[in-house]
Write a protein that binds this DNA or RNA. Structure first.
Lengths: 153, 153
DNA sequence: TCAAATTCATTCGTATGCAAATGATATCAG
DNA sequence: CTGATATCATTTGCATACGAATGAATTTGA
């Protein structure tokens, strides 16, 4: 056995597991799983709307009519994604679109009365979803978690 | 003005913003954004592989040959999703599949030598991705965050 | 003013992600 | 042993998600 071999073994012993890569400890992997769990909880409480669709309705309810592009910025969706979401909400009669009178590039999006009723009905469920998602944490832990998560996002 | 009106106003005043639903404060929305940010960081460091593809390679590197179904369980992908991921890795020559000799239902998946070289080369980059993702937090905050995130996932 | 740069929306291609249905195989229970 | 169950994999359909390319409209800057 060479001196190099001894040194290598020593280093590996000192490192413990540091030379091993454990997927299940990586923030990206756990983040993906936590997100999956939330989506699953969401689906169990609100079966006929996806989280992105809900986000679009909730934001329109909050700020009123806006352009598709601006809405996308506010709910963190790129232009291609938000178009699909709005198309499906439009097909279901929950939002309506119109052309901006001055800036002809813009597509204005707004809730229909049906969309307004839907979001008002769903917001209590959304609170329950948040609660269930955070249920594994104590109130204090949840506050800490949300603070740190917001710093990452 | 009725007594009910007074009571309502009082309650609303005491509630502050509690009657308003703010999407940007909901754990699901922030979780989605944090996940998006991580995927973006991942793509900037490892452009030719997605996080799910990397997860499959890393897990195979960790545990060796396994069935497609078992691999899916280990990396939190349902059967339909893992099939697509493995198909694409197979097309790129990073994994190879074979039939289980005893249980003919199972599809065994393993790294090719090329896949092994790839994951060994990428693991240092993955460590950098984790670091960059957690960069907005102090070391202590990151430890707390990971602990709480794991409880949620 | 007017050409260049920017913005808004759309389209295409690729890659997750999951529910539901299906087929093949294996295991279990009576 | 065999019918009922369960497991493994595949396929289809739908919904994000994003890069890149395109076209229309607006804004900027020399």
């Amino acid at each position: 056995m060479s001196g190099e071999d001894n040194l290598l073994r020593l280093v590996e012993a000192e490192d413990g597991d540091e030379n091993n890569y454990h997927l299940q400890d990586q923030v990206g992997f756990i983040l993906r799983k936590a997100h999956q769990r939330h989506v699953s909880i969401f689906a169990s409480q609100i079966g006929d709307l996806t989280p992105p669709q809900f986000a679009a309705l909730a934001k329109l309810y909050d700020i009123g009519e806006t352009s598709q592009n601006q809405l996308g910025t506010l709910i963190a969706m790129d232009a291609a994604t938000v178009k699909g979401v709005i198309d499906r909400l439009k097909a279901r009669g929950l939002v309506e679109v119109s052309k901006h009178e001055v800036d002809k590039r813009r597509l204005l999006v707004n809730l229909t009365s049906e969309g307004r009723e839907a979001i008002e009905r769903l917001i209590p469920l959304a609170r329950a979803i948040t609660e269930e998602t955070l249920a594994p944490l104590t109130t204090k832990e949840a506050a800490t978690f949300l603070r740190l998560l917001a710093k990452l996002a």
